[in-house]
């Protein structure tokens, strides 16, 4: 009797409400700002852009925005934050199976992937990594900002190393994030909030099934 569904007009699924989209935008903006103003220190051909410390000011501005994200979540989407954190750190056997087949998924093939909930295992892993590494980069960043004078040469080098390696991990995660967004045409979810139901089913069938069969969760295109 699945024909009923199939005969119905194509539908869109509510992927992200307004609050998480705002939060994501703030996070994305601040991270890009931080990345650019940080990377110019490492890449000597453009390091002259750091002259005079203007980039340092922008970097600190970015840092404030970056650290604002958890607070934003507390204000505008406490439940979503809780859910996101809980999900990111809990993996069932489907998740484990999914991770085993990650290379397929990486190459754009979802056919044989185990069914996934709202977040696939890769997304969970991504989010969990972002949370943990962000903690490192924030703490090392705050130390470099406020306590640099009392570090000594070794302390400075160590803190800066932690900051740099954290940045490296976050950047690689960002590259992966952008990669999957591109491969799976996932951008609309963040811009409009909705994604086509058929694509949602490919990756998050368990979640789509669990959603109530009504607006605003499922709407006609």
């Amino acid at each position: 009797m699945s024909t009923q569904v199939q005969t119905a007009p194509p539908r869109k699924i509510l992927r992200y409400r307004v609050a998480p989209r705002i939060n994501h935008a703030v996070l994305a903006t601040s991270f890009i700002l931080l990345l650019i103003t940080g990377l110019i220190l490492l890449w000597s051909p453009v390091s002259f852009l750091a002259a005079g410390g203007r980039s340092g000011v922008l970097h600190r501005l970015g840092a404030v925005l970056f650290m604002l994200v958890p607070i934003l979540y507390l204000i505008d989407d406490r439940r979503g934050a809780k859910e996101l954190l809980w999900d990111s750190f809990h993996y069932d056997k489907d998740d484990v199976a999914w991770l085993k087949h990650i290379l397929q998924y990486f190459m754009g093939r979802t056919a044989n992937m185990p069914p996934q909930g709202r977040l696939n295992a890769g997304q969970k892993f991504h989010h969990a990594s972002v949370v943990i590494v962000s903690a490192f980069i924030v703490v090392s960043g705050l130390v470099l900002w406020f306590a640099k004078g009392s570090l000594g040469a070794d302390g400075l080098a160590m803190t800066a190393t932690v900051h740099d390696i954290s940045m490296l991990i976050l950047t690689v995660l960002l590259v992966g994030h952008l990669y999957f967004t591109f491969v799976y045409k996932a951008l609309p979810g963040m811009t409009t909030g909705y994604i086509p139901e058929e694509e949602a089913r490919l990756e998050h069938s368990k979640w789509v099934d669990s959603l109530p069969d009504e607006a605003p969760y499922k709407v006609n295109e």
């Binding site: 051909p45 453009v46 002259f48 852009l49 002259a51 005079g52 410390g53 203007r54």
Partner: peptide
């Protein structure tokens, strides 16, 4: 490009 960038940076910072 680098030269312009430097000039801009210098102009910005008056440095």
């Amino acid at each position: 490009g680098r030269e312009i960038g430097r000039a801009v940076a210098n102009g910005l910072t008056k440095l």
